[in-house]
Simulated scan of single mutants.
Amino acid sequence: MTFIKRILWWANLGGAAAYLIICGALLAMGRAPYPGQAMLLGQVAFGILATLAPGFLERTFHFRFPELLVTIFYFFILTAVLLGTGMQFYNIPYWDKFLHLFSASMLAGLGLAIFGALLGRDQLRRTRPLLLALFAVAFGTMVGVLWEFYEFTGDGLLGLNMQRTMSGTHPLLGRLALMDTMGDLFADFGGSLLLGLLCYFGVKKDPAWLDTFMFEKSA
């Protein structure tokens, strides 16, 4: 897993750097390859910061994120920021829904890690699998709801169309205006539920299954 994590880390940093250099130069020459190129450059630059964030937090607070979750996080940043936003892969049908499904599973796993850190391993081993699964589902779904709050706020304050309530310059009406947001929430719940089910049956079979999602102390 460490090898895959390293590959994804370099893919994020190297890909983002190449994107900033090439697309930035084309923008300066008046030949921007994508609409809204200046904003896209800022978002891809943010992707670099997001990639560096786990390592910075680990060194600052002397702990380690679960290896699996960090690897999934790097894959998510690559597909959501560099490919999805920077290279406009969000125009591919269901790309956005796949990422919501995927990220919700990752966040549900993060919820397990937080639950374990707050509870302690000894007590965690005595916790019923159903409670762990319910917490994972609730946490992943909650973060998905908070993301929709962010999109709603951004659309209102900055005139964006993250919730896809506009078709070109025309506002969608009624049920059509809700389709993207509700589809995202369904995907968030589905991804969280998938991890919750894996948690329930995994812990029922072997409580050590949770170790994959636990934070570790470091020197």
Rank of each mutant, 00 (worst) to 15 (best):
L49Y: 13
T51Y: 09
V44F: 06
A104L: 03
G86M: 06
L40G: 02
Y34Q: 12
L52Q: 15
F56I: 15
P33R: 06
A80I: 00
A32M: 01
Q37W: 04
L69N: 10
F75N: 09
T85Q: 13
R64E: 12
F46V: 13
I77N: 02
F63C: 06
M29A: 11
L99N: 02
F46P: 01
G24K: 03
Y34D: 03
G47L: 10
Y74M: 10
A45C: 13
P66M: 06
I77L: 14
P93C: 09
G30V: 00
F73K: 02
R31G: 00
Y34P: 01
V81F: 09
D96G: 02
A80H: 09
I92V: 15
M87I: 05
T71G: 05
T79A: 13
M87A: 11
V44T: 11
F61I: 03
Y94T: 07
L49R: 11
F89E: 08
F63W: 10
V44I: 12
T51E: 08
Y90S: 03
R31W: 07
L99A: 07
L69R: 07
I48F: 13
Q37P: 00
H62E: 11
G24I: 00
W95Q: 08
G24H: 02
A50C: 15
N91Y: 12
T51C: 12
R64M: 00
A32N: 02
L107Q: 06
V44D: 06
P54V: 02
Q88E: 14
L82W: 04
A80Y: 07
F56L: 15
A25L: 09
F73D: 05
C23G: 00
G30D: 01
Y94H: 12
F76C: 04
T79V: 07
A53M: 15
L40M: 12
Y94R: 13
L78E: 06
F76K: 06
P35D: 12
A50W: 09
A50R: 10
P54T: 10
F63H: 09
A25Y: 10
F65K: 03
A25S: 10
F75R: 04
L82P: 06
R59A: 11
L49F: 14
R31P: 00
L78K: 03
K97I: 10
L83A: 14
D96C: 08
H62S: 13
I72N: 00
G30Q: 07
G84S: 07
F46Q: 10
L107A: 09
C23F: 11
L26H: 07
E58P: 06
L82G: 07
F76D: 02
A32G: 07
Q37D: 02
T60Y: 13
H62T: 10
A104F: 05
F65N: 04
E67G: 12
L69A: 02
D96Q: 04
G42R: 10
C23R: 00
L68R: 15
M29D: 07
L82Q: 06
R64F: 01
T71I: 02
R64L: 05
T51H: 08
F76N: 04
E58L: 10
